[in-house]
Structures are given as C-alpha cells and as structure tokens.
Amino acid sequence: MLLTFIVRRVLWTVPFLIAVSLVSFALIQAPPGDYLTSFAATLAASGDEVDQGRLEALRQRYGLDQPFLVQYWRWISGVLQGDFGISFEWQQPVSNLIWERMGLSVCLALGTLLFTWAVAFPVGIFSAVRKYSIGDYIATTFGFIGLATPNFLIALVLMYIGVVYFGADVSGLFSEEYQNAAWSWGKLLDLLAHLWIPVIILGTSSSASLIRIMRANLLDELHKPYVVTARAKGLSEFTLLMRYPVRLALNPFVSTIGWAFPQLISGAVITAFVLSLPTAGPLLLQALLAQDMYLAGAFILLLCSLTVIGMLVSDILLALIDPRVRYQ
C-alpha cells in the first residue's frame, strides 16, 4: 500500500514538472519586449549608437524571433541536457553561474530548516503541555516578537552588534581568502563559521510561527480520548506524549515542509542583500530586472522544481507517519 502510494506520487510529479517548466518559461516571457530591447534602451540611454542590423542578428542568433513553443522547446531540451542557455548580461553559460549559488542557497535553507525544527519542536511541545506557565509566556512573547520583526531588521541589528562589539566579520558566507578559492576542508569550515548568523536571522520568524503551530496542534490532541486510553494502560506521561499526541500533531507540520523550502530561498532575498550573501536570491532579482531571460528562467525553474520535490517529500513523509493518508 505504501509502495504503490509512493510510486503514484512520484509519477504524478512528472506532469507537474512539465507544467511548472511551461509556466516558468511563460513568466519570463511575460514582460513586454525581450533582453535586446532593454539592451538597446540601455545603450540609447548612455548615448551609444544602436545598430538595428546587429540587434536583428543577435535576435536571430538567440532565436528570439521564433514562436513561443519553439523557443520553449529549444530551451527545455537544452535544460534536460544540463544546458540552461546563455546569460545575456554575463555573456557566459547560465549553468556556470547558478550551481554554486543554488548550492549555497539550499545549504542555507537546510540549515535554517534544521535550526527551526530544533528550536520549535521542544519549545512548542513544552508550551502546549505547560499551557499558561511562565515558560509558555516566555516562549509566546519570544514567538510574537520573532513573528513581528522583519528579518532584515534583525540582520542589521546583529551586524551592528557583531561589528561594533565583537569586531566580527558578519557579512557574506566566506572570509576573503576563501572567496574565490576552490572547495576544500578549510573553505567548508569557513562556510560553517559564517553560516550560523544568517541561519539564526532567517530561522527566528519561522521558528516563532512553528512554535505557535506546534502548540496549537498539540493542544488539540492532548485531550483526545486515545490519550486517556494510553494513560489508562499505564504508560508514563513522557512516553505517552511522544508516542501519541505529538505524533499526531506532527501531521500539519510535515505538510508544510513542501512550501517551507522555496519560501526560505525566495524569502531570503532581502536578508541576502543586507548580509551580501552569495546566494541565489540577489542574482535572480538582478536577472529579472535586466530581462536576462535564460538566467531568470533557470532560477525560477529550479525554485519551482524544489517546490514540487518538497511537496513530494512531505507527501511521502505524511504517508509514513499517518497510515490514513495512504488509503485515500
């Protein structure tokens, strides 16, 4: 039953991925004009002569005069072979530009997710079980402050404190000597040493909201009859709590994994600017502004794919922890 469920869900992602790629291509085509019109506009603005013949040649070279579906087909068949096209603005293959940034983004997102869970689970469980205790009030206060404060503001405050009082290097993800160095153990350690600051900044608000979700979910479950049954069996309170209500309270939790991931990546753009992180967000924004369509398209496609895969993962996890899901 579980296996057929997983196979079905995996098969379903294929049409979804196709649809997602179509939509992302349509999205980057949606603004009027193309890269060359904005290129020409930039040239004109700086007073340069715009050579219509050259523009036309470029347009033909990149296939920009072809109908939508033909362009899409050329793009997507390239993507399947790992070729995301050429970035107009950077004049180099998109794949050279995105992988490292996407990798760092995913790294940051995973770190933030782990941090969020490590904080939100125990605190959420505690504040549900000890409802209206001092600890619950403290967690709740922290939660509301975390929810209400924009990430970039926390980033600025942390940066100020870090630089002024500790003289620490808080921006970026690497120290200067590793900035353009090849990957090594030293670089990895350097990354980890820098990573915790954005992880805390990005994780504050999401752990705050997860604490609230966990608390509310668990409060619903704590007084269900099956908890009384388990207590009447003679289970200790802690085992009982973990085995029954917490397990059921996880349900809504797991179903949010799907969108937690892309949200972390796209939501981190402002923070990434403030901290000058070499992640995907800033580059994506720049590419969108310049109508650098293949670069923007690659980012959007990867973000959408991450959403679809995140959903797949959360569906499978949900089926693992809740057998009722498998039978519907």
Binding site: K224, P225, Y226, V228, T229, A230, R231, A232, K233, G234, L235, S236, Y244, R247, L248, I321, D322, P323, R324
Partner: peptide
Amino acid sequence: AAIRAIRGRDIAMIFQEPMSSLSPV
C-alpha cells in the same frame, strides 16, 4: 510509577467511543 503499574495490569478500562479511543496512526 506505583499507580502506573496498577493501570492496565490490575485495573483496565474501556471507553465509550471506540472510534476515537484508539490511536488512528
């Protein structure tokens, strides 16, 4: 621990709602 050793071993209990008194997962 003393009362927990009694629950379920010496004195067992069944409830009204067989639907919700057993864990669904």
